[in-house]
Design a protein around this nucleic acid. Structure first.
Length: 275
DNA sequence: ATAAGGCCCTGACCGC
DNA sequence: TGCGGTCAGGGCCTTA
């Protein structure tokens, strides 16, 4: 599932392809994909816009146009954004088609239809409520401590809360907790400052490592929740130490990795290493 | 204010 | 082979 490293990879790889391209047409095959403005307004307003700026905030892709408006994309579970150099028949699960001025097309595909697109003059209202960007200086141990102080919710649930820290999802939450040697059911407010410092560092480390490997491409078999814009798989799944390794030996101590359900999310951990 | 549960969706997978 | 049921899960909404 696309989390911060996957979205970052998308932005980095789409930027050189899209920069300077102008949108010449728009088709909305599943209008509910558009979160704002209304679907007809979106289709009308985006035509003529020229891509000029590329960014990311949490799991939101921010594709800025010369005019100042921003196309925001949240892939949620199974969203894909890809550029097709030479138009082919519209593939299944394609919900948005943007024709570009060089004859290529930007496609939004999403089998589960959870992902959303916005076209907004200002991204800030959509992003309001997001916690600090974990790889920036805004994310501090003191800030993390303040956010979890007094919280009885489990630390795993708090890591999934985008107002605590932006961009962490189920994969990187489990991997960060393993690296910090913290049991996922620990109450957030019970963590010592030392444990929070370890967790803070682990979150940063796991995200940096994920970006370096172009994200995690999962798929119980053929289904790929995430592939890079050009279709290649990421490589970080090969470095997962706990995520979807249920029953396999812990890489540190050999104890079988356990799976439990927390906050409606599967959670993987080493019962020996994580206290 | 916080915590927990439902909902949106559909492909994959399982048991019969 | 076909069919129905279950699972996965990010963010938003409702409920307690």
């Amino acid at each position: 599932m696309p989390e911060l490293p996957e979205v970052e990879t998308y932005v980095r790889e789409l930027a050189p392809i899209l920069h300077g391209r102008q949108v010449t047409g728009a088709q909305l095959l599943w209008p509910r994909t558009i979160a704002a403005p209304s679907a007809p307004e979106f289709a009308h307003q985006i035509v003529g816009e020229r891509f000029a700026a590329f960014g990311r905030r949490g799991k939101y892709m921010l594709l800025g146009f010369e005019s100042g408006v921003t196309l925001m994309v949240h892939l949620r579970m199974t969203g894909h954004l890809l550029v097709e150099a030479t138009p082919a028949p519209i593939a299944r699960h394609t919900h948005v088609v943007l024709d570009l001025d060089d004859g290529s097309r930007l496609l939004y595909q999403d089998s589960r239809k959870f992902g959303r697109l916005w076209l907004v003059p200002d991204a800030e209202p959509v992003l309001r409520g997001l916690g600090p960007e974990p790889l920036s200086g805004d994310f501090t141990v003191a800030g993390l401590a303040a956010k979890v102080a007094g919280r009885t919710a489990r630390v795993k649930a708090l890591l999934l809360d985008q107002s605590i820290v932006a961009g962490v999802g189920n994969i990187y939450a489990d991997e960060a907790l393993f690296r910090a040697r913290l049991h996922p059911t620990r109450a957030g407010g019970d963590l010592s400052i030392t444990e929070l410092a370890d967790l803070h560092q682990a979150i940063r480390d796991v995200l940096v490592d994920g970006i370096a490997r172009f994200g995690s491409s999962l798929g119980r078999s053929g289904l790929q929740n995430y592939v890079r814009p050009g279709g290649e798989r990421g490589g970080f799944q090969e470095e997962h130490r706990v995520f979807r390794r249920t029953g396999e030996p812990c890489l540190l101590c050999g104890t079988p990795i356990e799976r439990i359900v927390l906050a409606q999310r599967s959670t993987h951990f080493c019962p020996n290493c994580q206290k």
